[in-house]
């Protein structure tokens, strides 16, 4: 417990927060990696997932891919891309994107599949075109599930970004590995706590976003049923 206290003191020491390799800068770096990776992964996975969900084509492949990806060891992908792409951000970022794509892809098509078929049939009966069904029904109704997928992807990247310091990237993992190498347990433990806090805060933000993503009509309907 004494060690835990020392770690907290390490985190709170103002001297550790400033400068280009201070906690503030490293936290922003960590967050920056995460957001960039999730944005790139979403740009790849969301259109494909929506296409799979809308047309029902390629569903088997998408399910197999997102299932198999769970078995993919993050450290393995990270060291592989680092070795292939060399020093710099390209290697780790490629790994982050590879690891973030499957959960976003799965959430994008699962969100569409969760839409009540009768709602889509009703829309078609009213003369909605395919594009209108997509943008006015499937996308808004599938959004909460998609946000859930973005949430898991973001958490996955936060965890992997910590490991990325092992292959030379920045972020809060830097302190962790520096502490490990120099046997500075307070630094190692303190930075671990910071990563945990960062992950939990991000998780909370996505939980709120997920709630905000539920279309108003759906919540009204649900409340109506409960009342």
């Amino acid at each position: 417990m004494n060690q835990l206290w020392e770690a907290v003191l390490w985190c709170l020491d103002p001297a550790h927060w400033t400068g280009p390799s201070g906690i503030a800068a490293r936290s922003l770096e960590h967050l920056g990696y995460t957001l960039l990776a999730v944005v790139i992964a979403a740009a790849i996975a969301v259109p494909i997932g929506w296409w799979v969900g809308h047309t029902g084509r390629g569903r088997g492949a998408a399910v197999a891919l997102s299932g198999a990806a769970r078995a993919l060891p993050t450290l393995g992908v990270l060291t592989l891309t680092a070795l292939l792409l060399g020093i710099g951000l390209a290697g780790p970022m490629t790994a982050f994107v590879i690891l973030a794509v499957p959960s976003i892809l799965a959430a994008a098509y699962a969100g569409f599949e969760a839409v009540d078929r009768r709602v889509i049939d009703a829309a078609r009966a009213q003369g909605y075109t395919g594009a209108q069904v997509l943008w006015q029904i499937e996308v808004p109704l599938g959004l909460p599930v998609l946000v859930g997928g973005l949430r898991s992807a973001a958490l996955q990247v936060v965890a992997t970004a910590t490991l990325a310091a092992y292959v030379g990237a920045g972020g809060l993992g830097r302190y962790l590995f520096l502490g490990l190498k120099t046997q500075d347990y307070a630094m190692m433990l303190g930075s671990s706590l910071l990563v945990v806090v960062l992950a939990l805060v991000l998780d909370g933000v996505f939980a709120l976003a997920g709630r905000a993503a539920v279309p108003r009509g759906v919540t009204v309907a649900r409340r109506g049923v409960n009342a």
């Binding site: 417990m1 060690q3 835990l4 770690a7 958490l155 936060v158 965890a159 910590t162 490991l163 993992g173 962790l176 190692m188 433990l189 930075s191 671990s192 706590l193 990563v195 945990v196 992950a199 939990l200 991000l202 998780d203």
Partner: peptide
């Protein structure tokens, strides 16, 4: 919440 905690930091916090 448990599931949101990254693994490497957990490996380091647990010993304490």
């Amino acid at each position: 919440l448990m599931y949101a905690i990254p693994s490497l930091p957990l490996f380091i916090v647990l010993p304490v």
